[in-house]
């Protein structure tokens, strides 16, 4: 989809639709993602934002304040997509009756807990029904709002408060669920995986495509959490870059069923380069734990090869 020239300076000078005053942590990946996504809206277009219960929700809409310039609704943890289905249905009803002239876009945010786990059914339903909406998962790989508990998005061997490390445990023993692929299996018009890199062009273009493609779209954004991942606030962009360069978090999109790899590192870095930046993987670097890292590397390699096959990159 062509949208004209991308210029970060121009984009960043647009009025913010998530304004200052919210209570998210410094170095949090969530609000960076929200702002990047909302910048892709045409300024004249209105939006209704839905949020699952999450850090984002409890920190951005605290009665009697809101950081959202657009209309905003939160109902519960596991039903953000279904809630948006209702909003979109109301919009369709008003449009058909000639009671509303303006264009509204429907953008829904959920963390990985509210998306991969408890909100999975609601998301799947809304996508299958063809709701004209964009669902954005800000994936920080654990239940951060309740205190860093493991989710089905938590990667192998990560230390969380419910996959604790100890003399008898190396952290989470299960693999991360591949949600982006599951969403592609819904055969919806647009699915993408992205994160924050250099000039934010990748996330911007994916957001624009998602918002301005008719029908349901899903974007999975790797959104680090300084509390849960245990990094210094200013390390966020190093981590997301390492995630992409190690192929832990490849950038790709599925447009009308066509798999497109957006970036292939010239030299794929070993997973240690990603893991070592985060306290949640610190235990893996103790002598004697080399096999754990090797296991993570094997998993990343296998999934990278699988993705390249899907994208027909040889």
């Amino acid at each position: 989809m062509a949208f004209g020239q991308y210029n970060l300076k121009d984009e960043a000078s647009k009025p913010e639709r998530l304004t200052a005053g919210h209570r998210m942590c410094a170095g949090c990946g969530s609000t960076i993602g929200v702002r990047a996504i909302l910048r892709a809206l045409n300024p004249e277009d209105r939006a209704v934002i839905t949020s699952a219960t999450s850090c984002l929700e409890v920190s951005s809409c605290n009665y009697p304040y809101t950081s959202w310039e657009d209309s905003f609704i939160h109902t519960a943890f596991e039903n953000a997509a279904a809630t948006t289905s209702g909003v979109a249905a109301a919009y369709d009803a008003l449009k058909k009756k000639g009671k509303l002239d303006e264009t509204y876009k429907f953008i829904t945010f959920g963390g990985d807990g509210g998306t991969y786990d408890i909100g999975f059914q609601s998301l799947s339903g809304a996508m299958e029904r063809g709701t004209d909406m964009v669902y954005v998962c800000y994936d920080n790989e654990a239940y951060m709002n309740t205190g860093i508990q493991r989710s089905s998005s938590t990667p192998l061997y990560a230390d969380t408060t419910t996959s604790a490390i100890g003399t008898h445990s190396d952290g989470k023993v299960q693999n991360k669920k591949d949600l982006t692929k599951i969403m592609a299996a819904h055969h919806i018009p647009y699915v993408a995986q992205t994160t924050y890199l250099s000039n934010f062009k990748d996330i911007h273009q994916k957001a624009r495509t998602a918002i301005y493609t008719e029908g349901p779209a899903f974007i999975n954004v790797l959104a680090p959490c300084p509390r849960g991942w245990r990094y210094k606030e200013d390390a966020l962009m190093d981590i997301t870059k390492a995630a992409v360069e190690t192929c832990v978090w490849p950038l790709f999109e599925v447009v009308e069923g066509e798999w497109i790899l957006n970036y292939e590192p010239k030299k794929k870095l070993p997973v240690e380069e990603y893991l070592k930046l985060q306290g949640r993987f610190k235990h893996l670097f103790k002598p004697g734990n080399e096999h754990l890292i090797a296991q993570i590397q094997d998993g990343v390699d296998a999934r990278w090869e699988e993705l390249k096959q899907l994208c027909q990159v040889v």
């Binding site: 209704v48 839905t50 609704i73 109902t75 519960a76 039903n79 279904a82 809630t83 948006t84 289905s85 209702g86 909003v87 979109a88 249905a89 109301a90 919009y91 009803a93 008003l94 609601s122």
Partner: peptide, 9 residues
């Protein structure tokens, strides 16, 4: 959930 979203709209 959808009823709530619609009614709120």
């Amino acid at each position: 959930s959808a009823c709530i979203g619609a009614s709120a709209s």
